[in-house]
Design a protein around this nucleic acid. Sequence first.
DNA 1: AACCCTGTTATCGA
DNA 2: TTCGATAACAGGGT
Length: 265
Amino acid sequence: MPELAEVAFHASKWKAAVGQRFRLDWISPKARCCRHCDADTLRSALDDSVLKAGYTHGKRMLFSFGDRSYLEIHLGMTGSLRRENLDYERVKHDHLVLRGERTLLVFQDSRQFGKVAFHRTEGDLPAWWRELPPQPHDEQFTPERFEEILSRSPRSVLKAFLLKQEYFPGVGNWMADEILWQARVRPSRKVESLSKKESDALFEKLRFVCAEAIRTIGGDYSDPPETWLFQHRWKDGGDCPATGKPLVRETIGGRTTCWSPAWQR
DNA sequence: AACCCTGTTATCGA
DNA sequence: TTCGATAACAGGGT
């Protein structure tokens, strides 16, 4: 279930093991999600090196080991990170297991749309990681940057626009719907059709939804407020928490989209 | 059995 | 060039 905040939550599971030494316990040789990660390379690179830190950026995670070793993880649609006791026995869809001094770190992903990749780098962090665009909740994500992004995709449909990771790293299907619903704008609208008032609302709700989701889901996986669309969107025959009227589900921008016709203009 | 899915990428065509 | 639609990936849930 990984978007921005879920990713932060999963990363925190592994971050709790910072300081321990790790070695490779298991990596699935045939799993698609591990095809960018050579087992021998990873094994010799880790070799009881200390987990130094964990980082997240949008839907990506990066864990640094020892001197210059980095493990990049993307959870795809169904990935998860867990800690397990040392006597844990691997189950189906566990594709990566790292053995530490007091815990195991496990990456599981049934659909295998996720990604595990190993990087060895000079300097503090890989250059590509440092050059990632600002996240919506970063300070550098200014109103000016938002305006600039808007002007670059004038004919894009808003739903598809918000899902562009190069602009809004970490925003996924439910967050995009939530942002549009809170800003009271229809998902099928074009970027260029937004009034100043609407684009201001969109910016504000983008920042608010990201920050609040990180606080709740990203913290202890607690639910966002009842007043959000989030709680109602997948229920069959769900009602809009603002108007009490039925929500609609349709495919917009290639993804199932939930919205409230009586609420969004 | 048919159809759905909180993600990404390649390809085709308007 | 930009964007949208579609399929593919691989498995589980309804």
